[in-house]
Each structure stands twice: as structure tokens, then as C-alpha cells.
Amino acid sequence: MPYEVVNTSVAQGLTPNHSGYCDVVRTRGLPEEITPLLAPLNYYDDQLGRGRPAFGVRTIRFGGRAWGVVSRVIPNGNDYTGRPNRLAHHVLTPPSETDSISPARILSQFKFRDSFDGTPRYLDREPEIPSTESNCDEVWTALGGQGWCLHISQLALAGSRLVVLIPPSVDGRSVVTSLVAHLPIDQRWALSVAESSSAEQCWAQGVAVRILTTDLDDESGRRTWPGEVLIDLRVSRTAPAPSRSRERDVAQGSATEPSQVVELDFGAFDANRSEGRSDEGSGPIEVAISFESAPVVTRHGAGERTHDCRPLEIQPTSWKQIVAWTILGLITGGFLGFVIRSAI
């Protein structure tokens, strides 16, 4: 059974003698000890959020297992002390149900609260999660095509950290929904996405993709960290999907092989950006500071996909080596045994 939690600043919270930021709505049965783990997800960044709702898909570890959390945080007027307030609404999926409940279903159709009135209360019913998810893919037509969605999610699953800049005219909720909707069912909670979140917050929460809504001339949110890939989808409405040659071009701006970790050099970083703008014209600007793991691009029909090389994945060539070394070991062991027995 999924749970929901609403957190905002009130004079009297759900817990007796608690005021200020506290839970005001909680599904009965949800352990109270989980509340502090949700506290970092309640934060609303005014500068990056600009009054728009900030959606996020993350996992938290509670009781030794991963819980899925879909969140929406919005500014919520002033609180009882007259100071700016925010309201965070989380839908939590317990570990036993993460396989059956997709974050895209919650994101696309769940009715998140816009405000809180009345007295704090426990909910006896579970949150109403629709059985189907709505298709949000059309949002990518304004961002250069569906290829970007696949490219971003695959890069993130491969271990890269990404910043995706989108224009204010595009609905951030649809972008987040679409990103998680196209993943295989067993990996839908593996991709953590947060909207309007700073680099520090994303690092602390282990978020792989952060989506920032900014104007073209706005430089806020450009603070990136080594290894982060910046994908700027604000420039073009008809940008082509990413290609192998493009990715290589970007990486070669500061290194010869895309698989190498590129030493951070802000001079080269700026040069890459300016080159991207002047050469590509209206094309999207993608700047790779470094790739934590090299995406290997293989062709599948007309489109292109990236496949990640997972560190623990054993390749067929590795199996051959293991078998060969085992046989060699057996022969050597047998020979040594024979020699020792002969000597005795």
C-alpha cells in the first residue's frame, strides 16, 4: 500500500507540541521515523524554482530497503508567522510494491495538494494512484525530439550525472514523467530525477538528472560539478536527436577519447560552450565536462541507443578467459601433485 505525507509550516503539526515545518497529513500506518528522511526532499529553492512546482523522483533507504518517493514541492504563501512558506507532498511506495507501481503513473495523474487547510490529520485511505499513466511524450517535440528523452535516461542509468535546461514554456512535470516512463519496469525507480534543485542538493540526495527551467539569458543553475553533463534544450525547437558523431565532437573538445575522464578546465569549458553556439547556430548545446563511464553507442535500426557498460557485468570474452584459466589451473595442479607424490 502506498502512503502520502504532506509537510508545511503550521502552528500545530500532527505530532503534539510540534510547530513550524512539520507533517500535517500522513497516511495511517506509515512509520513516523521515516519523516526525518524526507526532510531533505521538502526543500524548495526559490531561485531555481521561480514559483513553479518542483517535481522529483527519488529513493530513500529505510529499514535497510529502498522506498520510492515521488514529490512535489510548491511555494505556499505565508505561514502563521508571516514568513514565506512551502508545501511538500510526497507519495511513498514501499519496497514490496516498487515493481508494480511506476513513478510515471504517480507523476502523470496523481492529484497533489496545492494548499493545506484545517487541522492536521491521519488518512485512513491509501492515496488514489491511477492504474494507467498518461503519455507525456509530446513535450519532447518542443525540445528537439523523442531521441533526447532516451538519450538522457540512458546516460543517467549508465552513471552520468546530468543537468537538463528547459525553457519556461515547457512543462517540467511532463519532462520528468516522460523520462521515467520509457525505462524498463525494473529500472523505473533506479533513475532519480529532481526539478529545480541545486547541484549540492542533488549530490546529497544521489539524484542523477536535475532539470532546470530557465530563460536563455539566465545563467543561474549553470554551476556544475566535475563529471556532470549539461544538456541545454532551450535553444532549438527542432534540434535533432543526439548522434554518435555529435557526442564524440563534444568530448573531443577537451580530450581525444570520450572514455577518458577529462580534467576539469573551466577555460576549455567556456570555449566549448561558445564554439557550440557559434558553430551549431540553433542546435542544442551539449557540453561534456567528463564522462564517468563511457557510453557505447550501437545502432538499432534507424535510431541510435546508448548501452552502458556496467562494472559488474561479465562479458562473453570474460567467460572464455575464466574457463581457460580454470583448465590451466587444473592441469598445473595435477602436474604438481604428480611430482610431489613421485618425490615422496
Binding site: P40, N42, D46, T81
Partner: peptide
Amino acid sequence: HVPRKTEVSGGDWYHQIRVGARIES
């Protein structure tokens, strides 16, 4: 202007560091 309400976690009010596999504020 009234200063912003101090957040319980995250934001400008806290240092966050990695201790083993978890983050501490």
C-alpha cells in the same frame, strides 16, 4: 523584509558531507 524561515534540512543553512554511504548535515 522578514528573513526566510530557517529550513529544517537542506538549502543554505547546512553543510552536507558524505560519511560512508550516507550524507550528514
